[in-house]
């Protein structure tokens, strides 16, 4: 089974994240880039499926040069190879343009399954899985906390508002995962060494046959009008419980008219 796992490099949530003041896109110099957390779960799921059903795991990333670090990390978890779509023309692409570009790159890879995170920690749109399924014309099995593949049949447990749905489809398909699905492995020293030699194919938009008129900031379907720091939260009142902490909260709630 050929599995493609989508990996996005995002700014480390532990650092201060910013948008640039000129074109209001992500300020990549402001914080370290790391693999989007949920994508580690996607990689793990890809590896588990490969261990069970055979085949290969390919990492697909769209992003600037420095995303190579995240690709190496993904390979050191055990993925076989990677495809890195990188082109100045992609800078500032919005979610749907990114989905379009990724769908073009996927068109060049033979896959049975595309696995991705259900949401990134920076943009958090959560639309990628759905938009990709739409572009690729394959079934959408998103928000999964359990995946079973049996021959050409795939079955997932999809988290919903009220519990979960069992969803069934035929491969090829797109699966997005939530963190309940597994526990990502740590790269072993051996795998880290091996990862350095694994093939990473670099694609420009021309290579991937991505239409330049459909990507990039200038053609984006959305525009960030302005960016400002949130007004600072007034410092809260923090008290130590000396036996009447509960009463003090009640007084605060009464003041705010909650009780």
């Amino acid at each position: 089974m050929n599995i493609v796992v989508l990996v996005k490099q995002v700014p480390d949530t532990a650092t201060e994240r910013k948008l640039t003041s000129d074109d209001k896109t992500l300020d990549r110099a402001a914080s370290d880039g790391v693999i989007n957390e949920l994508d580690e779960y996607a990689i793990e799921e890809g590896l588990l499926l490969k261990e069970k059903h055979g085949g290969e795991v390919t990492i697909l990333t769209m992003g600037p040069e420095q995303a190579t670090d995240s690709i190496r990390k993904a390979l050191s978890m055990g993925a076989d190879k990677a495809v890195h779509v990188s082109d100045e023309a992609l800078h500032g692409s919005d979610a749907l343009q990114s989905a379009y570009a990724l769908s073009r790159a996927l068109g060049r890879i033979e896959f049975d399954l595309v696995v991705l995170g259900s949401e990134s920690t920076d943009a958090r749109t959560g639309v990628m899985g759905a938009a990709l399924a739409e572009y690729l014309g394959v079934p959408q099995l998103t928000l999964a906390d359990k995946v079973d593949v049996d021959g050409q049949a795939i079955k997932v447990q999809r988290l919903t508002d009220y519990g979960y749905d069992v969803v069934e489809a035929e491969l090829p398909a797109v699966v997005s995962v939530v963190e309940k699905i597994n526990e990502p492995r740590y790269p072993s020293f051996k795998l880290i060494m091996q990862a350095k030699k694994k093939p990473v194919e670099k694609l420009t938009i021309a290579d991937a046959e991505i239409d330049a008129a459909r990507v990039g900031l200038a053609n984006a379907t959305t525009e960030t009008v302005d960016v400002a720091p949130a007004p600072p939260r007034a410092a809260g009142t923090i008290v130590k419980d000396e036996g009447e902490g509960g009463v003090k909260i009640a007084e605060f709630l009464a003041e705010k008219k909650f009780v």
Binding site: G236, T237, I238, V239, G245, G246, A250, F252, A254, V259
Partner: peptide, 28 residues
Amino acid sequence: IFELADFGVIGDLHKVAPQLTEEISKRK
């Protein structure tokens, strides 16, 4: 969480929360 809190109590929730519940009931 205290960085976000408008009101925070440093203490054992098993003491503070029941007291709060009781206090709210009293005020109803």
